[in-house]
Design a protein around this nucleic acid. Structure first.
Lengths: 179, 179
DNA sequence: CACGATGATGTTACCGAGTCACATCGCTTA
DNA sequence: TAAGCGATGTGACTCGGTAACATCATCGTG
C-alpha cells in the first residue's frame, strides 16, 4: 500500500502499472499483488471491511433506549477511535491522490456507501424502520467523512474522535434547521 | 443500450463481452461501441448527464425566497417529469441487472453521488452554505431513488412525479423526527 | 453531374488489468 | 530426512480500452 501510494503520487494512478507496484513493494510480481488485493484500486482502500465491522458492532452494542442518532454517534466514536495518530499523514497523502482520479473517486464513493449501508442494516437490526435508519446512517457517514478530511488536512490538530463528534453535532443542527 | 440490457439479462454482465453487445446492436464492432460509451458499464447509465443539467437548471430557476428544500423539491419535480411512462419497464429491467453485479452497483452509486453533488453546487450558487446545501441535496437524492425504485417496480402505478413528491415528504418528515 | 468534405464505421495492432494452471522455493514439523 | 504447506513465480490467456489508419456512404456545392 505504501509502495502504491508513493508511485501514484509520483506518476499518477493511470501511469502506474500493477507490476510496478509489486516490484517496488519488495521485488514481487503482479500475481502476488492480486492475491492480496481484488483489483488495482483496492490497494488504497483495503481494510475498510474492518470499519464495517466496527460500526456494526458499536450500533448493536448501544444501550436499548438509545435513539438511532445516539447509536450512530456511538458508531462514529468507535470508528474515529480506530484511527491512531500515526495514520493521519497517510490520510493526508491519500485524499489528493483519490481526488485526482475518476476511478479512485468512484471506489471511494462506493466505500462510503458501503459504510452507510452497514450502519443502516445495524440500525434495522435494532428495530429502527428502514427510512429513519438510512437517514440516520447517512447523516453519520456525512459527518465522519467531513471530520476525516479535516483531520487529515490539519497535522497536529485535534484527534479524529473529537472532530467526528463535533462534525456530527453540526450536521444534526444543520439538518434540524432545514425545516 | 437495449442490446446490452438484453444480453446482461440473458447471460449476466460478466459473461457478456463488448463485442457481443456491438454485434447484437446491428452488426457493429467493439470499436464503435467505445465511440459512444466511455466504458462497458456506461451503456446502462448513459444520459444521466442530462439529469445533472435538469436539477442544476431547476434549482437555479427556483424563486429567490425559496428555501433549500423547496429548491430541491423543484429539482425533483423536473427530474421526475423527465421520465416518460414508456421508460418505466426499462427501469424495471435495469434495476435487477445492476443489483446483480458489483461493478454496476459501484457505477450506480457514483451516479447517485454525482446527482447529489450537482444539486449541492446549484444550491451553493444560490448562496446556501455548504453543509445545509449538501444535506438538502442528499435528502432529495434519497427521496428520488426511493421513488424511482417504487415507480419501476409497479407497472401501472402512479407517475414518477407523484411518487417523488410523496417520497420527499416522507423523507423530510422522517428527518425531522430524528431529533 | 462530379467533386471534395464529413461523419460513421471497420481493421489491425497494441497495452494493461485480471485469471488460471502449474511449478518452485523455503520453512516447519513429524 | 522427508513430507507438507504457505507464499511466490511463470507463462499463457481473455477481455476492456486506445490509437492510427483505411474505407465507405452521404451530402452540399460548384
Amino acid at each position: 500500500m505504501r509502495a502504491a501510494l508513493d508511485l501514484f503520487t509520483e506518476q499518477g494512478y493511470d501511469a502506474t502499472t500493477v507490476s510496478e507496484i509489486a516490484a517496488r513493494a519488495g521485488g514481487l510480481s503482479k500475481m502476488t499483488f492480486f492475491r492480496y488485493f481484488a483489483d488495482k484500486r483496492e490497494v488504497l482502500f483495503a481494510g475498510q471491511e474492518a470499519h464495517r465491522q466496527l460500526v456494526t458492532d458499536a450500533i448493536a452494542a448501544a444501550p436499548a433506549p438509545a435513539t438511532p442518532l445516539e447509536a450512530v454517534a456511538a458508531a462514529l466514536g468507535a470508528l474515529g477511535g480506530s484511527f491512531t495518530e500515526d495514520r493521519r499523514d497517510i490520510g493526508a497523502r491519500l485524499l489528493p491522490v483519490i481526488a485526482a482520479n475518476g476511478e479512485l473517486r468512484e471506489r471511494a464513493v462506493a466505500k462510503r456507501a458501503a459504510l452507510s449501508e452497514a450502519m443502516t442494516a445495524a440500525l434495522e437490526q435494532r428495530g429502527v424502520p428502514g427510512l429513519p435508519a438510512s437517514l440516520a446512517a447517512e447523516l453519520g457517514t456525512h459527518a465522519f467523512y467531513r471530520a476525516f478530511a479535516q483531520w487529515a488536512g490539519a497535522a497536529g490538530g485535534p484527534p479524529l474522535t473529537e472532530l467526528t463528534q463535533r462534525a456530527f453535532g453540526e450536521v444534526r443542527a444543520a439538518a434540524a434547521s432545514l425545516g
